[in-house]
Design a protein around this nucleic acid. Structure first.
Lengths: 126, 126
DNA sequence: GTTTATGCAAATTCTTTGCAATACT
DNA sequence: AGTATTGCAAAGAATTTGCATAAAC
């Protein structure tokens, strides 16, 4: 449902996602967009975009919220398996296109899985 | 290296781990042990126990730190694949004994993997 | 007796909330 | 016009830091 109004702020944020890759820290987005955009506004737009299935989010290795553009998600189902890779050196966090098979757990209902790989990225391997 | 002194506080914390199952929130431990033990003390003991390979930690679905007793870790290598299951209803977080095969990522060095399954636990499935 | 651990208060960091003002459709 | 959105200030929650005191080896 397109309940997210295309305000200037929303467009700005979507533009940031289009021109960057990987999963972005909400904290960084807040910093980057200040003072043109208020901190609260950034958090709330991210929340709305996620509700609308435009972006997805997860907690990274530091417990910080990260957002990335969804590929193949919609508002009804936007929480599929999203493997991510986080570099322990530079912190850069990438979305992986790996197909994650969600293991079954006896007597449990598994809705989704978050797989975070931690290591060194291409740039930091040198 | 047994650099962790067996103080009363340390023993208390180890006792909590022995008498509970699943991965415990540092926040809850702090609450539970107050006011006998100071907040800072709890955080610091947890940190030391993890350094020593007695317990391991990860960020849960809410980005909160959780700790659980290690099985088969030591101070040199205590960060192996640790799949966990977190109940979206009651929040209970269990350690799974599943063997997680860490996928390779081209041009990256993967040190470890955090797999968190989210769903409903046995108790909450009724 | 030296080193490690603890307590306390204060600071930090990320995120959320309430409410009035504003922009979108 | 009516509803969704924004800004600002303040609150909240989890975790960390500095420093003086106390306990462990």
């Amino acid at each position: 449902m397109g309940i997210v109004r295309k305000t200037k702020s929303v467009k700005t944020l979507l533009d940031v996602f289009d021109h960057s890759n990987g999963a972005l820290l909400s904290v960084d987005l807040v910093k980057q967009l200040q003072p043109q955009m208020n901190k609260t506004t950034v958090y709330r737009i991210l929340e709305r975009l996620e509700d609308d299935g435009i972006i997805h989010s997860f907690k990274d290795n530091e417990g910080l919220q990260r957002y990335a553009k969804c590929k193949g998600c919609d508002s009804s189902q936007h929480r599929d398996a999203h493997p991510h890779f986080q570099c322990r050196d530079c912190g850069k966090t990438e979305c992986l296109s790996l197909d994650l098979s969600v293991p079954a757990v006896p007597n449990h209902k598994v809705d989704r899985a978050e797989l975070l790989l931690i290591g060194q990225c291409e740039d930091c391997l040198l």
